[in-house]
Design a protein around this nucleic acid. Structure first.
Lengths: 139, 139
DNA sequence: CAGCATCCCGGCGGATACTG
DNA sequence: CAGTATCCGCCGGGATGCTG
């Protein structure tokens, strides 16, 4: 039994032609994960959770972000309806950013996630150490 | 007042030399966000939430993933202590993947997130439509 | 079946310069 | 101050081929 030549032909039936496999069922999660995925969205949300901020204040509140990524990120958040922008036409110009109702809600969800990571950060760090000794060099 | 030549010199005080700006305060969230960020981790977690799966079953359960990304993703999840792997040395070989206790906990957190996105997907879609008409072409 | 090794491309995001 | 425009390097991840 267990001839190595048999299972070579047992076709994998690779989910037969799924084109782009766009989830179909669940999704909508993708949009959320995309925001969570990029480097800055969450940080900006967290900063705005403390209240309305101007562009410069926001930049200062999110250490390391470039002006470009700040504009791009805020624009994406605005597009998704998480953030609102108010422009005061003065010299020098002023622009205020604040969370929308949905933004606040999202902020709460993020906070819950932060809670989870706080409760498990030691366990994760430990797991990584173990992995490093058992599989040195990998990843 | 409001002379346009004055504020040109008011140095931005660009968060003075933060090297890599590694958060310092919060963090641990970065690790979690990194898992949420990549394209497949969440999908694999969701698939494993339904129970133990073999490599091939997992591949079938996550439509669109390549064998390479499946190995890479599972390995990362194992490294972080979210997934366990059991190898049965037989011909043909068999490998089982299952969530750890922490993995189950994480799976729950993800489920909460999925809930949020389900409750707001319409609102997000609507916001995007509005944005598209008001700012055609951007993003 | 369950992987590892290699090649390669797209786009995310950093750095820099310019404008109202 | 609050952006916009441009250039560019890096790496996440797809496709393919080979092994135990």
């Amino acid at each position: 039994m267990a001839d190595t030549s048999t299972w070579a032909l047992s076709a994998v039936s690779t989910t037969q032609a799924n084109e782009h496999a766009p989830c179909e069922d669940d999704c909508g999660i993708r949009d959320v994960l995309d925001r969570l995925g990029d480097r800055w969205s969450v940080l900006v949300i967290v900063a705005l959770a403390k209240g309305t901020r101007r562009f410069g204040e926001l930049k200062a509140a999110v250490p390391g972000i470039s002006q470009r990524m700040l504009t791009v990120t805020t624009k994406r958040l605005i597009r998704d309806g998480l953030v609102e922008r108010t422009v005061y036409p003065m010299i020098p110009p002023q622009t205020d950013y604040r969370l929308t109702a949905m933004g606040e809600s999202f902020s709460q969800a993020v906070a819950d996630l932060a809670d989870w990571s706080r409760r498990h950060k030691e366990a994760i760090a430990l797991a990584r150490l173990r992995f490093e000794v058992e599989h040195p060099g990998e990843l």
